[in-house]
Amino acid sequence: MSQIVQFFFSGLTLGSIYAVVALGFNLIYSTTGILNFAQGEFLMLGGMTAVTLARFTPIPVAVVGAVVIVTLCGGVLEILFFRRLRRPTVLQMIIITIGLSIVIREVALHVWDEKVRSLSYFTGNECSSVRVLGAGISPQVFWVLGTVALVVLLLHLFLHRSLVGRAMRACASNPEAAMLAGINTGRMRTLAFMLSAGIGALGGCVISPITMTQYDSGAGLAIKGFAAAMLGGLGRPMPGVLGGLLVGLAEAFSVYFGMPAAYKDATAFGILVAVLFVRPQGLFSSGELQAGAQER
């Protein structure tokens, strides 16, 4: 029993990070139609920046600083690489994001070298644990789960209760009509990039003590997060979160049921391939919504 709880929490923790990546994917995809393959890099940048800042400041300040810096980076990237494109095709923009992810990784390699770094535990240390149903759970796990839950809640409120959030959803639903309602779609796009980058950076910070951060740790996360987003139905933030948790749990329990841990990553890819073949519109999506997304 205690073992199941252990695996469950480990799956939930990883899953909530995939959920963060999926949130970023979906926010950008739904407001702009771009699949941002540099999404994982935002997590890496967040973790790395926080590690660097933590040398001079207490951890909470370092985390806030990292989130602010990466959020601004997200905005700058959008303004530099996407805003000035004239009549870009979606494929062009996706390839730009792939290029960006490579450039960011290389820059990170030069700034932070190849060493694996990690932020120290927010409370306690590697050895401290909280007993839950007989299993020992690291307090950092609760930081991760709590932070992600809070982010999801705030984002949901933002999208559904605020004017700006509603304007973002309007862009996602019908860009032309949104423009004609006086919404500056370019600015909404920048905002989507900033939000995705900031949320990613925060995820990168809270997970850093558990999984460590390295210059290339973003790529793997991006693919897992992409699998999560596809599982939930591309372009739909909240189902994507569920998708993330499912992917994380599937990964953890595949090990529990005897799959060699080295093949753990195969689970996420297996899910991705299966979703693409069997249910490309995602688990929780009706066909109708997908048709809407394809129109763009």
């Binding site: 959803r169 639903s173 019908n174 919404i183 919504l289």
Partner: peptide
């Protein structure tokens, strides 16, 4: 050209967006 994922009221509220004053 309606926002299909929103309620009737929300659709109209988006129209008020540009007459609102508080930014992000």
């Amino acid at each position: 050209a309606l926002f299909e994922n929103m309620t009737v009221l929300e659709n109209v509220m988006v129209g008020r967006h540009l007459r609102s004053h508080s930014g992000a």
